[in-house]
């Protein structure tokens, strides 16, 4: 019964947020973008709305949160009642507050990692395609070898060697993910570097960096942006998984993965509180995936 009820409420919220998001976007968009938003599927507008909500919560975390991030407020595992609307965790900290700060920490770290992986991977990939020859061969074969090791396993190996802290976590995940971005950026750039206008730019005497930034990157942007969304999901999920395993973001920093781990015992008593941070992770990844799916569909021009 409760399951049916929650499914109904979930579907209702989905349509509500989806419609509201689409209407708002359509109203706010400049005239030449209006058709794009009018035809967008509900899933995509739902995704965009959810992402917007997360960003607002992350930025305004200290304003919205009722208590301090690491503040201990009394008994552990209190039930859902005012003033602790979602109860307290195993140290007596307010769950709602930590959920809100988690948006800032977890999403922020995942975003920084993805951005780093992208800068590293795409610059190296385009550079390899541009220079070509032996350098390209060596770098690509090296990346192939790295990619033959599963990502999670390789990250775990590197974390063992360099120790676990937030900085090493960001660097390790970014390095592992940069190999995947490198592959894509290189294959996209290979199609571009053979074009005449690149030849012309070379003859004009443009330097390597300018060629990458001004000539190739603008034309390689579309596939890279779609990949950014997907990569963000991967990075976000792997950082959450590592935090859940106790190897990622460490307490007292509020983080969704480690919040699940800390409070997991409650689940065996039928309390769903530990599922909330896990649900927050899931909801954001679903939202990003919906938006990426829509963008890919639009870019491919498929109507099936």
């Amino acid at each position: 019964m409760t399951i049916l009820l929650s499914i109904f409420i979930g579907l209702g919220l989905f349509f509500l947020v989806g419609f509201a998001g689409r209407t708002a976007l359509h109203a706010a968009a400049p005239a030449h973008h209006k058709p794009m938003f009018r035809d967008m599927p509900l899933t995509a507008s739902f995704g965009l709305a959810v992402i917007a909500i997360y960003v607002v919560v992350a930025i305004l975390a200290p304003v919205i949160a009722p208590f301090g991030e690491g503040q201990v407020l009394g008994a552990a595992y209190q039930p859902w009642a005012a003033p602790h609307y979602l109860g307290t965790d195993k140290l007596g900290r307010d769950m709602l507050t930590r959920l809100i700060y988690g948006a800032r920490n977890t999403v922020g770290i995942a975003f920084a990692t993805t951005a780093l992986a992208f800068v590293l991977g795409s610059v190296l990939g385009i550079w390899a395609a541009l220079v070509g020859g032996r350098l390209d061969q060596w770098m690509s074969r090296f990346v192939d070898a790295l990619m033959a090791i599963p990502a999670l396993i390789f990250s775990l190996l590197l974390l063992t060697i360099f120790g676990t802290s937030v900085l090493t976590l960001i660097l390790v995940i970014a390095a592992v993910d940069a190999t995947r971005v490198y592959r894509l950026a290189r294959s996209v750039a290979q199609g571009i570097v053979v074009m005449d206008y690149i030849e012309a730019a070379r003859l004009r005497g443009e330097g390597m960096w300018r060629l990458i930034r001004r000539e190739i990157l603008p034309n390689a942007m579309a596939p890279l942006v779609a990949e950014f969304g997907l990569r963000f999901c991967f990075v976000f999920l792997s950082i959450s998984a590592l935090s859940f395993l106790g190897l990622g973001i460490k307490p007292p920093t509020a983080d969704w993965g480690s919040m699940v781990r800390e409070n997991a015992t409650l689940i065996t008593f039928g309390d769903i509180t530990p599922l909330l941070p896990a649900g927050a992770i899931a909801l954001l990844t679903v939202a990003v995936n919906f938006v990426v799916d829509w963008q890919l569909h639009r870019a491919s021009g498929l109507k099936e």
Binding site: I281, A282, T285, V286, V288, D293
Partner: peptide, 17 residues
């Protein structure tokens, strides 16, 4: 698409619940 986006531990704990 939803299932792909779920972290494994989320699915696992829902099943436990």
């Amino acid at each position: 698409l939803t299932a792909i986006s779920f972290p494994e531990f989320f699915v696992a704990y829902i099943l436990v619940l």
